[in-house]
């Protein structure tokens, strides 16, 4: 089972399995253990998956989180894929899910997740991170908290520095 880091820096193990998008013409195979399936396929089979606490979804970096606007609260977990760590679309996706669509359950970063981006992910609303296996997970807690001060409001705070300075 893969190690997962949580936003407070603890390491946990769980058995969420990411199910890749089936090739064209193939049907989705849902495994017996808890599974993350492509978000559009969850929507297509909504009546089948609805209410199942062992089925979550994942969005790719080019997916539009708008598609989950009406249903996101009913999902136990949403994962966002970073196909390459330098693809920054996942940060906007995360903020939209949290701040616009009010998603409150677990939001996980998956894919090319490295140490030096963890704090940005945390600030944008991700609360669990599937670090790429070759990276040293013991360094994750420090990397989640390099900065004790930040300038902007984001998902993690409603108080940009200019508002904190005023108080």
């Amino acid at each position: 089972m893969p190690d997962i880091i949580t936003r407070d820096g603890t390491i946990k193990q769980d058995n969420w399995t990411l199910v890749p998008r089936p090739a064209a013409g193939d049907s989705l195979e849902v495994p017996a253990q808890p599974a993350l399936i492509p978000a559009d396929l969850w929507l297509a089979g909504q009546e089948h998956f609805e209410g199942r606490q062992d089925i979550g979804v994942w969005l790719d970096s080019h997916d539009e989180p708008e598609m989950l606007a009406e249903v996101v609260e009913r999902l136990p977990i949403v994962a966002v894929n970073f196909p390459k760590f330098s693809d920054g679309r996942g940060y906007s996706i995360a903020r939209l899910l949290r701040e616009r669509y009010g998603y409150g359950n677990e939001l996980r970063a998956v894919g090319d997740v490295l140490l030096d981006q963890l704090q940005f992910m945390k600030r944008c609303g991700f609360d669990s991170y599937a670090l790429r296996p070759d990276k040293d997970i013991s360094k994750a807690p420090r990397c989640l908290n390099f900065f004790s001060q930040t300038y902007q409001a984001a998902t993690d705070t409603d108080l940009p520095l200019f508002r904190r300075r005023a108080s």
């Binding site: 693809d87 920054g88 940060y91 940005f120 600030r123 944008c124 984001a154 940009p160 520095l161």
Partner: peptide
């Protein structure tokens, strides 16, 4: 003001 807002902005560190 723009400098402070843009410094280490968590959403915009990996733009196209």
């Amino acid at each position: 003001i723009i400098r402070q807002w843009s410094t280490f902005h968590p959403e915009f560190a990996f733009l196209p």
